[in-house]
Write a protein that binds this DNA or RNA. Structure first.
Lengths: 216, 216
DNA sequence: CCGATAGATGAATGAGTATTCCATATTGTA
DNA sequence: TACAATATGGAATACTCATTCATCTATCGG
């Protein structure tokens, strides 16, 4: 019995995607280990169990692989963050949700996040190339998302009157540096999520003990 | 009239140092512009107005130049921070001083700081190589310095009982991300120091408006 | 089962560049 | 001034890869 040509081409499509995915996974492993410049196409091809020429059927260059990899992840994170902040909870709770989502994402993407954090504060070429533009845009989208949360909280009186963008930026810096050190230092057992509660309270209440709020 | 041989060798010593410095300055310019991997020895030599062979009389490799450069800067910053925190002011004021010193340093080393920030959250090789070890140590020394400040403040009751190391880390993250975006985005006119006051109040008082401190 | 098409292969290519090496120039000594 | 000793110059060397392409292999329709 014959199957239709369209079904067969569907299978082909699936196989194509699966192979592409294989290569991305191999690249993720290698880039995570050695960084972009010190990873060769030969290594990626070998890890993915393809010949180099084959890799070039799926991606037009080494940079293209990297772009695709980083973009997919940053997009996923942004999607998760948007999801987590669509509820009708107070801004404060949403802020805590953002922390939890980012930490959980880092937890599940430990190997990758090393690249992400690197690129986030990366080398010059990162910012100049098309890659940088695209990823940078998504990072700024994250900043904006949180900045809007902060605006919301200011309106409801939950937060002080601060500059939302600057504060969002500082907030991300706090998170990222915590994540970064955790990636570098801890074994895979320790949980990052535990730090989330504490970070939330630091951000909301500050370090000081004075119950009188200082003048700005 | 003759001068003693020791005086002459002193001059030589000085000249040697001066040339070494020239090369470092050229390297700093180039690395700042293009990053480590995209800067060639030929470019550094040309910028320093030496031949490549000469550059190799002062540094044994490209990486060696980079190491020397980054180390010198990180050491300088650490020295400045130690100086700024040796007074007998309250911990809170010292913390503000740390912010000011770091921001001022970034301001004066704008070109360089791009490298520093990059390396601070850099690629894997950074951490593994001898370079990474040495610079990393100094970064941790900064973290420790602030952690000790926080301990101090907890003892005097100025600060809440938090984990000093984690808090110091979050604090550095806040600062670094603010510095980083400033480096990328602003023209050379805007002052970074202005953000210092605000960052201090965010850290000490938090974002929230509630005058009752939440339970940890 | 066969020719045709698309997919896979990896050695060869070529560009880029860190490092070396020795001829030349400069400096120090007598 | 002449003779080391030392410093400098930059062309030549010796790589390391990203990318290509001629060739081989698997899949497909008929």
């Amino acid at each position: 019995m014959k199957v239709g040509a369209d079904q067969r081409s569907q299978r082909k499509q699936r196989e194509y995607e699966a192979r592409r995915e294989e290569i991305l996974l191999a690249a993720e492993r290698k880039f995570s280990q050695n960084g972009f410049f010190k990873t060769s196409m030969a290594e990626i091809a070998e890890d993915a169990q393809f010949a180099m020429g084959t890799v070039y059927r799926f991606f037009k260059s080494k940079e293209d692989i990297y772009i695709s990899l980083v973009e997919a992840k940053v997009e996923e994170l942004l999607r998760l963050l948007e999801e987590a902040t669509q509820s009708r909870l107070p801004a404060q709770e949403k802020l805590r949700a953002v922390i939890q989502v980012k930490l959980a994402f880092a937890d599940q993407n430990r190997a990758f996040f090393r690249i992400y954090v690197s690129e986030w504060s990366g080398f010059e070429w990162t910012v100049k190339s098309a890659f940088g533009e695209r990823v940078w845009k998504r990072y700024l989208a994250q900043i904006d998302l949180v900045a809007n949360l902060i605006k919301e909280g200011i309106k409801t009186g939950e937060f002080r009157k601060v500059n939302p963008k600057d504060t969002s930026l500082a907030f991300h810096g706090m998170l990222n540096s915590t994540i970064y050190l955790w990636i570098l230092q801890s074994g895979p057992k320790e949980s990052l999520a535990d730090k989330g509660k504490w970070l939330g309270s630091l951000l909301l209440d500050g370090l000081g003990t004075s119950t009188l709020k200082r003048s700005m």
